[in-house]
Computed example of a mutant assay.
Amino acid sequence: MKRYCMACDLKDDPKLIEEYKSYHAKGNAWPEITKSIQSAGIVDMEIYLIGNRLFMIMEVDESYDAAAKAKADAANPKVQEWEELMWKYQQELPWADKGVKWVPMERIFKLGE
Results as ranks from 00 to 15, higher is better:
Arg3Phe: 10
Cys5Ser: 06
Ala7Gly: 13
Cys8Met: 12
Leu10Glu: 03
Leu10Tyr: 04
Lys11Ser: 04
Lys11Met: 04
Lys11Asp: 03
Pro14Ile: 07
Lys15Glu: 13
Leu16His: 12
Leu16Tyr: 13
Ile17Asn: 03
Glu19Val: 10
Lys21Val: 11
Ser22Asn: 14
Ser22Gly: 12
Tyr23Ala: 08
Lys26Glu: 13
Lys26Val: 07
Lys26Asn: 06
Lys26Trp: 05
Asn28Leu: 05
Ala29Trp: 04
Ala29Phe: 05
Trp30Val: 00
Trp30Pro: 00
Ile37Met: 10
Ser39Pro: 00
Ala40His: 13
Gly41Lys: 03
Val43His: 00
Asp44Leu: 07
Asp44Pro: 01
Ile47Met: 12
Ile47Asn: 04
Tyr48Glu: 07
Leu49Ser: 01
Gly51Cys: 04
Gly51Val: 03
Arg53Trp: 05
Phe55Tyr: 07
Met56Pro: 07
Met58Tyr: 04
Glu59Gln: 14
Asp61Thr: 07
Ser63Ala: 01
Tyr64Phe: 15
Tyr64His: 02
Tyr64Asn: 00
Ala68Asn: 14
Ala70Asp: 14
Lys71Met: 10
Lys71Phe: 05
Ala72Asn: 15
Asp73Val: 09
Ala75Cys: 03
Asn76Ser: 09
Pro77Trp: 13
Val79Leu: 07
Val79Glu: 04
Gln80Lys: 11
Glu81Gln: 06
Glu83Pro: 00
Glu84Val: 09
Leu85His: 08
Met86Arg: 02
Lys88Asp: 06
Lys88Val: 07
Glu92Asp: 12
Trp95Tyr: 15
Ala96Asn: 15
Lys98Met: 08
Trp102Lys: 07
Val103Leu: 08
Val103Tyr: 07
Val103Ser: 06
Pro104Phe: 11
Glu106Leu: 11
Glu106Pro: 00
Arg107Phe: 09
Leu111Asp: 11
Leu111Gln: 14
Gly112Met: 05
Gly112Glu: 08
Glu113Pro: 00
